[in-house]
Amino acid sequence: MPQKTDFHSRFAQALQDPQINTRPLLKPTGTANQRRRFDVYRNNRAVSLIDNLRSAYPAIFRLVGEDFFNAAARNYIDRHPPTGPVMAEYGGEFGDYMAAMPNTDSVPYLADIASLEWQRLQSYHSANSPVLNINELAKIDSAELVNLRLQRHPAFSAIQSRWPIGSIWTICTSDAESATSPAEVDMQRSESVVVTRPGLEVLTNVIPATGYLFLNALVQGKTIGDAAEPALTEDPTFDTGSHLAGLVALGVFSDINFTTE
């Protein structure tokens, strides 16, 4: 690799690599402990980026503990440094990065919990949009309703996991003493989680597996009637109307999509 000699490159290299001798960058003022002074910048950088990951991933922090989290964050920052100054946009690959690290076998749901937390952060900052009101659907004749498509809300996302990630996330982010103990969660249960933001607050809700099949088909642009098919195949008693009302109430949709295919 060609050696860069300009000031900014040399300073930046020293910032990333504590082994680099900083003396050539600094005035030989005779002040001892120049290294400690340069370390202020190294430390500021690490602390601010770790703090940022910590506020983006509070449940992961609780799951793996401070020492592991900070060590993983330091490695991640080295490998995937931010490319821009907007911190709400930094750290999207952190969950996958951590899950690929050694010693994470005991938390196999790490990547999925991290995805959930990242989706919540995106939802928090996403564009504002009104949510579809159930009364709009109630006005429509049921024979016509099945042919409608719905417009997904910009703050909505969903994640399906083979682990009970909604329950784990709730426990990890709850301060209440009375919260369910992690030991009480059935780890064999898979969960589908919906993230929405009908107002200012981000909501996290677990929905039934058949509900997720229905939702998935709806957001792919299928009509309400067609979208219910996979769920009905899975469970012939699937109640399309109540599932639709539930999803609308969570704020999954912004409007009826009147555009035709």
């Binding site: 930046a12 910032l15 100054p85």
Partner: peptide
């Protein structure tokens, strides 16, 4: 610097 934000 060089498409890398140093957060300080």
């Amino acid at each position: 610097h060089d498409n890398h934000f140093y957060s300080d």
